[in-house]
Simulated assay, not measured.
Amino acid sequence: MSNAFTLNRILGWAFGQNQFFERIFGPMSDIDIISKYREQFVTHLQARTQITDPRNLYEPVQYILGLGGKRLRPILALMTAEAFGGKAEKAMDAALAIEMFHNFSLVHDDIMDDAPLRRGKTTVHEKWDINTGILSGDAMLILSYQFFEGYPVKTYFELTKLFSKTALEVCEGQQYDVDFETRDDVTIPEYLKMIEYKTSVLVAAAMKMGAIVADADPKDADAIYEFGRNLGIAFQLQDDFLDAFGNPETFGKQIGGDIIENKKTYLYLKALQGATKDDKEGLLHLYSIKPEDSSTKVEAVKTIFEESGAVEETRKAIKKYTQMAFRALDETKLPEQSKALLQQFGESLMERTV
């Protein structure tokens, strides 16, 4: 499953809890708070990304940006800026940089995966060609940096330093994920680093950028980054668990999809550690095949996950990273009410069934 889809379900589900966000930001009469941020951001995006010549370079950029999505990373940047006493308007260009980079990564990921569709529409390299996809993606990366140029020098330096670090980590996470497909010696620390870099750091960076634009105390900015990073890791571990043991009526995708695709998830790696010799050999065999009827394989693997103790170990890890996120949140100088509501937000994510 793509990280874009994962994150959409992360925050798309949580953001649907309008009463929760009304308690943070106050009641909304005609439109919920997330829609307000999204509409403001999309208006800003459209104003800042007009097609110019050469059209074959910039039309694909506008095309991928126009495919929609919940715009969750930029929304987090705007929300965090206001939580720290700043104005969402001042965080718009930072939010746009995050969104532009995210979509750049999707264009190149689609080329690597030879994917025909993105958000139900033809991918850039299929609609145009591979060379156009590569070049337009490169332009998007450069545009991401240009959006920081309107900030004061000190803010510009802090934003670009964080952005460069995050962009490189996302690339490293993608490479780890590619490498893991053909490796049989993946370790748990390596897997945790991969999901942190592929999923968590861009979410964490979006929140920290909002704090930076709002001139938050550097310690607060670092703490809100850690909140987002650890919560993102906890969510991905929860997603691994739900992929195998979730309710098919609420989870929103095929149960056992990671097992069918032989994905080396946290459950799988923990099972290898705790399984008996026979079960370990059985698990390795099951992960070397892709039978036409996958249901028997999925059930056999799930049994090994349970009997090896991997299920309980995964639950412990989810709790561990969630608590680490809350400890980071406690270190901020945000009002206690805001801290409590953000903690409730995190707890709700971990209790989800979707």
Rank of each mutant, 00 (worst) to 15 (best):
S2E: 14
A4D: 12
F5A: 14
T6L: 11
T6K: 14
I10F: 14
L11G: 04
F15L: 11
Q17K: 15
N18M: 11
M28R: 15
D30L: 06
S35M: 07
T43P: 02
H44S: 02
A47I: 00
D53M: 13
N56Y: 14
N56W: 14
N56S: 13
Q62C: 12
I64T: 12
I64Q: 06
I75A: 11
A77E: 00
M79D: 01
A81I: 06
F84Q: 01
A88Q: 12
K90D: 14
A94C: 04
A94N: 01
L96E: 00
E99D: 00
M100L: 15
V107E: 01
H108W: 09
R118W: 09
T123H: 08
H125L: 10
D129E: 15
A139M: 14
M140H: 10
L141R: 15
I142P: 03
S144Q: 11
Y151E: 01
L162Y: 01
S164T: 14
K165Y: 09
E172R: 15
Q174W: 09
V178I: 15
F180Q: 05
T182H: 08
D184R: 04
D185H: 01
D185S: 03
I188N: 08
E190H: 06
Y191L: 05
Y197A: 09
M207A: 10
K208N: 08
K208H: 08
V213Y: 02
D220L: 01
A221P: 03
D222K: 10
E226V: 00
R229E: 11
G232C: 06
G232A: 07
D243G: 15
D243P: 09
D243W: 03
F251S: 08
G252M: 05
I260M: 13
L267E: 04
L272C: 12
A275F: 02
A275K: 09
A275Y: 02
H285S: 05
K290A: 11
S294L: 00
S294N: 14
F305A: 06
S308Q: 12
S308M: 09
T314H: 05
T314L: 01
I318C: 06
T322G: 11
M324P: 09
M324V: 07
D330N: 13
L334S: 10
F345E: 07
F345H: 07
F345A: 08
G346Q: 06
E347K: 13
S348M: 14
V354C: 11
V354W: 09
